[in-house]
């Protein structure tokens, strides 16, 4: 995705896109805070699965943002092998 990386190879475009998605996810959750908490605190199989899926979705969206953010800040591994 050459269009999403600047001339230094930093994925700033991707960081912005995933950043917007992350903000949207956090906004959705906190905007509906009461409804979410009322349902998730009930327990039971379906809501337990919903809690875990929500955590995984946040880790996917925010994890991708964090990945590109860290890359954009120039914090990169020294080499692939890690030594």
């Amino acid at each position: 995705m050459a269009s999403n990386t600047n001339k230094n190879g930093k994925p700033i475009g991707k960081a912005i896109i995933w950043g917007i998605l992350t903000i949207a996810a956090y906004f959705t959750l906190f905007y509906n805070e009461k409804t979410v908490m009322d349902h998730f605190s009930q327990g039971g199989g379906i809501y337990a699965a919903a809690v875990l899926i929500t955590s995984l979705c946040f880790s996917l969206v925010h994890g991708s943002f964090a990945n590109y953010l860290v890359d954009s800040l120039g914090i990169k591994p020294l080499n692939k092998e890690g030594h």
């Binding site: 956090y26 959750l29 009930q42 327990g43 337990a48 699965a49 809690v51 946040f58 880790s59 925010h62």
Partner: peptide
């Protein structure tokens, strides 16, 4: 989560 003890708001804030 089965007993509904997880506070998802704090989970996502810590995860941030």
């Amino acid at each position: 989560a089965l007993s509904g003890f997880i506070d998802i708001r704090m989970v996502v804030i810590i995860m941030a």
